[in-house]
């Protein structure tokens, strides 16, 4: 064994690969710091919000009454009661909205991708959807007020809220569905046509199921989004401390509306109600998101 290097040990040619230069090492470190820093900056407000909401509201929601009762008959000096009436309102308005918006939006997307391709009407529809997706919720709410209350003379109601939410939900679902249908390979459509399956059946049984998992995610996200919308409930329905099951008549509470009204109760009881409702809304939206990813995992395309 010898440790001395001889000529023979030395490579005959200089090494082909170089070390990482100090400049590159520095730039790499700098970029890492910047990216990590940006991540932290983005996380701070998020964690802060969630922390505040939980810290101030969690204690209020941790009893059964909160989930089962309303504030009916309670004044701002009575503790107790719950937000069942507002949870019901939020869920009902969201679901009514989804029941109307989702079929329309999916059919619009199917038209755009499967039938309209490059036609004038399709371009016009795409343009309209683009504009609609930029409409602020207050504008949708006022439009519906003008239509529903002023023109048609109908009373303000939870259903009117749902209709305003429909306007907000349609463009989101159209967009996601359109993108998802576009990535379904044409080969699948051709495989189906080649079996003598008509086009509409190909769309219903092959194309939509292939895109279903993504569509469900999109719908759930859109639903979670519209359930937190505040402008439509402020404009189109009044707050109600009692439980109202009828979407067509009378005032109906919802969580955003409840928060907005209880905000005016300037004592500890009102404050606890507001934060409790905030926790509840965040929880509901989280549940919807989780449900969405669960459903989309169940319908996802499997290869094993």
């Amino acid at each position: 064994m010898t440790t001395a290097t001889t000529d023979l040990d030395r490579p005959a040619t200089p090494p082909a690969f170089q070390e990482i230069s100090p400049g590159r090492k520095f730039r790499n470190r700098l970029a890492t710091v910047l990216v990590t820093g940006a991540f932290l900056v983005a996380m701070v407000p998020l964690v802060w919000v969630i922390w505040t909401v939980l810290a101030k509201g969690l204690h209020r929601v941790l009893n059964a009454d909160w989930w089962q009762k309303s504030f009916g008959g309670l004044t701002s000096r009575n503790p107790g009661g719950g937000v069942y009436h507002a949870i019901y309102g939020t869920l009902l308005q969201g679901l009514l909205c989804a029941v109307i918006a989702v079929p329309i939006a999916i059919m619009v997307a199917v038209y755009l991708v499967e039938y309209g391709r490059r036609s004038r009407l399709a371009k016009a529809v795409t343009f309209t959807v683009d504009i609609l997706s930029g409409v602020p919720s207050i504008v949708a709410a006022l439009f519906l007020y003008a239509l529903w209350v002023t023109t048609l003379g109908l009373p303000r109601s939870a259903f009117a809220v749902s209709l305003a939410l429909v306007l907000l939900m349609i463009p989101v679902v159209v967009r996601t569905t359109e993108e998802l249908l576009k990535i379904v390979p044409d080969e699948l459509r051709e495989a189906s046509y080649a079996l003598g399956i008509p086009k509409w059946k190909t769309i219903v049984k092959i194309v939509l199921p292939t895109a279903m998992s993504g569509i469900i995610t999109g719908v759930m996200l859109a639903l979670a989004r519209v359930m937190g919308e505040t402008a439509p409930v402020l404009v189109l329905v009044g707050y109600n401390q009692f439980i109202n099951y009828d979407p067509f008549q009378g005032n109906m509470a919802s969580l955003p509306l409840l928060m907005n009204s209880e905000r005016l109760t300037t004592n500890a009881i009102g404050e606890a109600r507001v934060w409790g409702a905030a926790v509840t809304l965040v929880l509901i939206i989280t549940v919807f998101n989780l449900l969405g990813s669960l459903l989309s995992r169940l319908t996802a395309i499997k290869t094993k």
Partner: peptide, 9 residues
């Protein structure tokens, strides 16, 4: 077809 295209669902 040239490329196998079974229905993924």
């Amino acid at each position: 077809f040239q490329r196998p295209n079974p229905f993924p669902t």
